[in-house]
């Protein structure tokens, strides 16, 4: 069996891990969004690898990649909208200061 599929899946797994680390450890909203982007990038790699190595004649796989790319763009748009609103209201987008909802 060719190692290509596993290599691609491992890349996806590593990007997923790095993304989780980033999303959890960063204190700034924009940096957290970067972590989420990396997680989604990991998903992208997996989808392309599945399409290429398992079902190269089923284009629903490529279609799915397009949808994930859309989600990435949406995440950015909405995230930045929220970031601007929060910055206007509170003067920062640091997560340490976002304690309004703390019980």
């Amino acid at each position: 069996m060719s190692p290509d599929l596993l290599l691609a899946l491992f890349t996806g797994a590593a990007l997923f891990g790095v993304g989780i680390y980033g999303a959890l450890s960063q204190t700034n909203l924009v940096m957290i969004m970067m972590g989420v982007e990396l997680i989604l990038a990991g998903a992208l790699v997996n989808l392309v690898a599945f399409w290429r190595f398992l079902h190269p004649h089923s284009y629903a796989g490529q279609m799915f990649v397009l949808i994930v790319m859309t989600v990435m763009a949406l995440e950015m748009a909405v995230g930045f909208g929220v970031a601007i609103a929060r910055f206007r209201a509170r003067g920062s987008v640091e997560m340490e200061e976002a304690t309004e909802l703390q019980g």
Binding site: L9, F10, G12, A13, A14, F16, G17, V18, G19, I20, Y21, G22, L24, S25, T27, G42, M95, E96
Partner: peptide, 18 residues
């Protein structure tokens, strides 16, 4: 913040998916 937890979560996530 919460560096140790994040590293743990990241490594665990990567290992699980791998």
């Amino acid at each position: 913040h919460q560096k140790r937890l994040s590293i743990l979560a990241g490594v665990a996530g990567a290992l699980a998916t791998a």
